[in-house]
Design a protein around this nucleic acid. Structure first.
Lengths: 250, 250
DNA sequence: TAACGAAAGTTGTCGGACAACCTGACCATC
DNA sequence: GATGGTCAGGTTGTCCGACAACTTTCGTTA
């Protein structure tokens, strides 16, 4: 037993998080359905054996998740429609492998569609912004510095070229999850030099397809890029993820 | 001015939401960066002119969002890496009408990709579930009842057939946001009878494409369906939204 | 200088009080 | 009988003070 094993002290979760988790479980199991009223704060406090303040913090948490809505004087209700989408990750050392694969896959689907639309809608200013970030990544490659921020910005520039603000926001949202893995791929002078070069070659093909107005090619390049990004962190995307779109299989 | 306009009373936001929002603004503007310590609860309460309980609820909210981490005895810190990503389309009363087009467009992109992947990955059980909901909608059409719940469930069944939980959750989130438009389309005996029939014809073509394992056809049908859904609530999607995918334009 | 204990500081929880709001019951009026 | 007004009781939202549990800093001692 090494010294590292002596440092893993498990801290008790907050009572409010436990209460929130228990209530959320009731919702996801269908014991509480949209529109149902929760017990009053007083009853919940008695039921869980905690103070009302703890219940209120749990409720604040579930409100942030969009799971419930509260109305002063009436009570707390299971939300009819979630007001937010919360992707909460496995709380160990990052996402579990199967979760990571599913997120990469979702990202591939979305960014492929986004690249395709960008190829149709881009205006010269969009193309100039993408090119600027592409060049910044080239420069980072050349001088061994960190290009991950330009990498992030390149993807956002593509999403911006769709001129659909919600698509942009979704790409931004999903991209946030990958900033760390991008930073790793671009890590300092001791980095595995092939990885950012590989990614950059993919960025360039994406850029060229979009700039030249080739939607299907843009889609395919974006999917290949996401497949490559996944494999660079050890995730193998399924082969059925829509790369062969040029012909209808039937 | 109709009676409906008289019912929109705007309720004041909770103080805790305002505090959370202000703190989040500091984080997104870079005034507070990952690892930075927030002022103590006491200072925040004084600064915002609220009680400590309100600050604590705001902090609970930001913890749920994955934006900050708290350590008892030390303080609250901006999270280094998000433990949770919370995506909100909007705060408050819903999107402006002008934003609906972007949202429908995004939905079209996502559900088209989902339908395509479902066409590749569906297993017999998936197909059976879709068919069951399709039949429930047929029955609702025949007897004039409300088929919107089956409509929701049909879309979720397609997403479930991707066997990607995040895709499922995203479709669920998007679908829940738009239940109202579905309910309108399926509204009672006085409804415009052409609308649900039109939608149902689209559902059937989607179903057949997925069941028979035709990814490109499934994609096209899903896009046509979302275009139809948008037009049924008065939104005209742009013509460049990738319907003509069968040939590479270049 | 290093180690230890105490003091000070900070978050987590509890309980009570009151404000603001909501709902339903009851009564009066038309 | 339908409608409108009032009020009591109930519920969430906020504030306050106290103490528990934990962390950091400071002072003392060896």
């Amino acid at each position: 037993m090494g010294i590292n094993e002596l440092r893993k002290i498990t801290r008790a979760p907050r009572l409010s998080e436990e209460v929130a988790s228990a209530l959320e479980g009731k919702i996801t199991r269908g014991e509480l359905t949209p529109g149902d009223q929760l017990p009053t704060e007083k009853v919940l406090a008695e039921t869980f054996g905690v103070s009302r303040a703890v219940v209120r913090e749990a409720v604040a948490r579930l409100r942030a998740d969009g799971r419930i809505e509260t109305r002063q004087g009436s009570g707390a209700f299971v939300a009819l429609a979630p007001k937010s989408l919360n992707f909460r990750f496995w709380q160990g050392e990052g996402p579990a492998l199967v979760e990571l694969r599913d997120i990469f896959e979702l990202r591939a689907m979305i960014e492929a569609s986004v690249a395709e639309l960008a190829a149709r809608r881009r205006i010269p200013e969009d193309v100039a912004v993408m090119e600027r970030h592409l060049k910044a990544m080239d420069a980072a490659l050349a001088d061994g510095s960190d290009g991950s921020e330009s990498d992030d910005n390149f993807h956002l520039a593509i999403a911006s070229a769709t001129h659909n603000t919600y698509a942009y926001r979704l790409v931004e949202f999903l991209g946030r999850h990958f900033s760390d893995s991008r930073r790793l791929a671009w890590a300092g002078p001791g980095r595995d030099g092939a990885l950012p070069e590989e990614a950059q070659a993919e960025h360039r093909t994406m850029f060229e397809a979009i700039a030249s107005g080739s939607p299907a090619r843009a889609r395919r390049c974006a999917q290949e890029h996401l497949r490559g990004a996944a494999s660079r962190v050890g995730i193998d995307l399924a082969n059925d993820l829509g790369v062969e779109l040029m012909l209808d299989p039937k």
